[in-house]
Nucleic acid binder design. Sequence first.
DNA 1: TAAAATACTTAACATTGTTCAATGAACTTT
DNA 2: AAAGTTCATTGAACAATGTTAAGTATTTTA
Lengths: 226, 226
Amino acid sequence: MGSIERRARERNQTRDLILTAARDIFIKEGCDALTMRRVADAIEYTPAAIYAHFKDKLHMMIALCDSDFGLLRDAMGDLDSITDPVQRLRVSGHAYVDFALLHPHHYRFMFMTPWPEEASIEPPPEIKKEIKKGNPDQDAYAFLTLLVRDCIAQGRFKPEYTDVDLVTQTCWAAAHGAVSLYITHGNDPWCNFTNPTKVARMLINSQLDGMLLQPDNAGSAYGEFA
Amino acid sequence: MGSIERRARERNQTRDLILTAARDIFIKEGCDALTMRRVADAIEYTPAAIYAHFKDKLHMMIALCDSDFGLLRDAMGDLDSITDPVQRLRVSGHAYVDFALLHPHHYRFMFMTPWPEEASIEPPPEIKKEIKKGNPDQDAYAFLTLLVRDCIAQGRFKPEYTDVDLVTQTCWAAAHGAVSLYITHGNDPWCNFTNPTKVARMLINSQLDGMLLQPDNAGSAYGEFA
DNA sequence: TAAAATACTTAACATTGTTCAATGAACTTT
DNA sequence: AAAGTTCATTGAACAATGTTAAGTATTTTA
């Protein structure tokens, strides 16, 4: 009677096998190198076998990044020790950037590639509890919204910057801009894009300073330009 | 003897024919819809015929965007009337954003897609003079550098913001961030990304304000939040 | 008029994602 | 224990992609 559970366990094992092989290729060689046949070869299966575990190549990749993006939440999670909401916003931006630069392929796929409408993530029920609720990017957006809301609620921003959605998107765009620019153009010879972290921190800090009602000098205090 | 010239002219005519058909598909349906066979069908040629005019699909697309991106330079060109360097920088950023949002597919291909190393643009000599010198993105970068250099030279920025390359990349990242975020996530249901222009102007203005030694209130004066 | 160059076509090849009938092993039922 | 069922996996194909090599007219040159 317990055999049905064992079957499910085995099923998840090969599912993870697929995912691990795919992740390996993805991280080492990027999105283009990740083909169904290469994944199948790596685990000594047939390409068609993958379709018993994932509807699509797209959904395979979503499952891949989805599990890895728990790390983004973790990276942005230990902000509770920071009481000042502006500083929380600042540091969360920096954490976001650090994460993106650490996992450029993931970031490209998750935040720089358009997905079809139907690509909502619905993991198989067996492992549903392992996965954070909702899309990671959606969650990140909601999380950022809370931070921004706090800053506005405490009257830290100039009156031009009191639309929560607008400010949230602006903050996100700041972090995203530096990161994505580096990911696509970091190796172009004509712009010496030496230090993306520096650029990102500079952008986040200057933008935040520009929104503040009264400057707090926290950007330089935290030594982001080191 | 003049026939050689006529041949060259005819050759360029079909080259333009290809480019026009490709542009049509590209603008209307985006990058994925642009296949060699569809272009060939549109002009009632065979797919292979295109390879007599372009080395590659990639180079066909580069030729396409390259000619269209003269418009970006034009859009950023009439800034000479603005004497204040900070205001020039601000307005050029806005112009950049407007252009990108007007040609999202072009922008995606030019600034959000990584190209292989060898993809330097070398147009056929016949029409070389028609084309602006250098890569358009490279040119835009150089142009932006000049604007930033002016601001720094006139002592308008805080001491943290005096590295020309760094500040240039930061400014570029600000404009790019808002634009690219909207292009990939503008239609995602979970973030109500209603007005990308507003977000972009907000980001550019706040970031610029944050860098300024003394605020000039020009952002709101120009009515960017309307 | 013969030779050469040019523009294009025909027909294929390799690589991609994807599907579907068949297989065979493990499990359930009788 | 035998028969039936489920299910993970395979084998073989299909369609669409970019690309290429050989062939075919047509036009230009000698």
